[in-house]
Every structure is written in C-alpha cells, then in structure tokens.
Nucleic acid binder design. Sequence first.
DNA 1: GTCTATACCCGGATAGAC
DNA 2: GTCTATCCGGGTATAGAC
Lengths: 203, 203
Amino acid sequence: MTSDERSDGSARPGRAGRRSGHAEPYTLASLVEVAARAFNERGYDATSMEDLSRAAGITKSSFYHHVSGKEALLRAALDRALDGLFGILAEPGASAGAPVDRLRHIVRRQVEVLATELPYVTLLLRLHGNTETERWALARRREFDQTIARLVADVRSDVDPVVAARLLSGTVNSLIEWYRPGRVPVAELVEAVDRQVFEGLLR
Amino acid sequence: MTSDERSDGSARPGRAGRRSGHAEPYTLASLVEVAARAFNERGYDATSMEDLSRAAGITKSSFYHHVSGKEALLRAALDRALDGLFGILAEPGASAGAPVDRLRHIVRRQVEVLATELPYVTLLLRLHGNTETERWALARRREFDQTIARLVADVRSDVDPVVAARLLSGTVNSLIEWYRPGRVPVAELVEAVDRQVFEGLLR
DNA sequence: GTCTATACCCGGATAGAC
DNA sequence: GTCTATCCGGGTATAGAC
C-alpha cells in the first residue's frame, strides 16, 4: 500500500508504477525483491499472487507474464540468500589461520550478509519444508551450519560443541527478527555481535 | 500420518484414535496441543482444518463440534505461551536482588519455559501479525521483551543496550529452532545458555 | 458426537483479446 | 506486455441425518 492505490478504474495501467526514469522493464530480480519483502511481511502462504502483482503495480495476469509461478519466486530468493552465505565460506579468511580466527571471520561476515541480503536470508530462515524447493534450501542451509559447527568444536571443547554451535548460529540469525537497514550501521552491528558472542554479557 | 491412515472407507470412526484407556473426550487443551504441533510443522497458514482433524483422528466436521475455528486454536496456544513467559516475571527471583542476578534468573527460567512449552512458544515467536489475534499476541510479547531490555541496560552500559537485549533474546529464543525434548536434558540446556550468554565463546 | 454433503469463497494459474 | 474473464482445486465453515 505504498503508492498507487486504485480507488476505481481510473488509474491508467502500462507505464504506471514506481520505476524511476529509464523505461526499465520488469526484471526477474526486481520482482523477486518485491516478492521477498511481501513474503516476509505476511508469510509465504499468506501472500497471494494478487498481493504480489499489486505490489508490483500490475495485475495478476500481467505478473504471470514475467514469472512462472509463486514457487519460482521463492526459489530465486532462496538462491540469492544461499549464494551470499556460501560465498563467505569461499573467502580466504574462512579457511586460513587458527580456528578461532576463521570462526570470527565467518561470524562477522555472516552478520554483514544477513544485513545486506536481509529479506532473502529471512525467507531462508523461516522455511517449513513444505515443498521440494523448500527442502532443498533447508538441506543447503544445514550444510552451511555444519561447517560452522565443526569450527566451533575446534574452538571450545568444554561445552557441548553441538549446542554451542546452535546457540552461535541462533544468535547471529536472530538478527533478522529485528534488524532493519539504516537505523544501526552494519559495522556497529558486527562489533556488537562479535563482542556478545565471544565475550558474553559479562567482562 | 502417524497411525490410522484410512485407505478406503473401512476404518471405523467413533472410538478410533490415539486415546489411551479411559474414555477421555476431546478437551480443548488436547486439541490445542495437536494444533500447535501441526502449525509449527507446516506453518499456520499452510495447515488446514482437514490436517488438524485428521491428526486428531476425527473428521473435519466433528472437529468443528469441539472448536469454534482455526483462529481460536491459535489464540489458545498463544495464551498458553504468554502465560508461561509472564509467569516468570511474577517470580520473586525476577524482581529481587541485583540486576545481573535478576537477569540471570529470568534467562534461565525462560530457557526452561521454552523447553517445556516448546510448541506454544514456537508459535508465538513465528507470528506475522496478519490477524487481530496475532497482533495482540505480538504486543504482549514486546512487553515481555522490553522488561528484559530494561534489565540489560542496567547490567552492561558500554554496548548499545538495545542491541545487546535483542541479541540476548535472540539467543534464548533461537532454541525453538533446534531444541527437541529428550535429547538434551533441560538442566544442561540452561547451563549451556547461561555460559554462552554471560561468558561468551572465549574464556 | 460423529458422519456425509454442500455452500461459499479465495487462491494459483490460464485463455485470449487488445 | 497489459488487460478481463474464467477454470479449478482446496480452504473454512455449516446443515442436518444418524
């Protein structure tokens, strides 16, 4: 309900919408962005294709001209989230040096990716596994988590490393529940998570 | 799909189902339990009344004889979750002593409540705010979180207390993503969270 | 209290004109 | 590339017999 609410049939179609200047057509990425935001607001199942098309500024049928279906949008969004996360593991800092340092690097970068790819990662973290697409994404996510879990086991062995790793991932991932871009700078967020995770609430 | 799958019309109705011995009728609480579990598995919107009634071992119509509707089930489940959480704040340990100790008490008890009321709290933490019921529950949840946030501000003032409180709640709440009763004893869970939260990953 | 049958609506997706 | 109109399945919920 941001801009063009059509109270009656007067609002003209076609060139309408939020596009800036250049006659930019609807790209897949732009529609995925719209969809991801809507999915996060109301939940995937509670979001109808009608909702999405209206958010994009066109009718449901026109929307289908650009996108094959609802699940395709979800898949594209999840792809983007997973690419961001696995990209971290491919960085030098994730495989070089002592386990603590590698873990620290990953955690800090993970916070950054969560912040920059917020809507996509949020979607990933709220999956239920109802469709094949969702189960595939969940499996990849588990892969990522297990990489971190192995590192945690190397860092601290006095507590159950499985539990410790879960709590670590939980802390980082919980960002999606409240972080919104703009209010807190990402750099500050990274520092806060780093300190809380590695030092705790007490000094 | 646990027990009585009716391949055809043969499976008899009535006394069928999972009830143990005594002719226990369907209580609201028992149906809410069934519903909460199903909601968490597939998501609230993706769970149909047909799903719920089948999980309860009766038909959809019979199910409606006991429950006024889907949202009533959600409301009852959320009530139970919120009762558990606010019960903590009413305990002596939550208001007596130094801020650190009160915070520690609340966190430890919160872990216990999350573990024992897992399906209900999980539901609460995954709300989207689509209905009036959901928005009401979310408001109460924010109340709870703010009480904790105030305590955190009294404990550690060098980091942004708002961010620190969010991370603390996030860590505790993230339990719902992986904890399942039986595997890890609750007492052990409490210790793990306590150490991770207050001491961090490094000593 | 349980069932079968059904009303009613809304969601995803398609047809086909412009 | 957009629209109107429509199909169809499945969802919540109800009616009413047993």
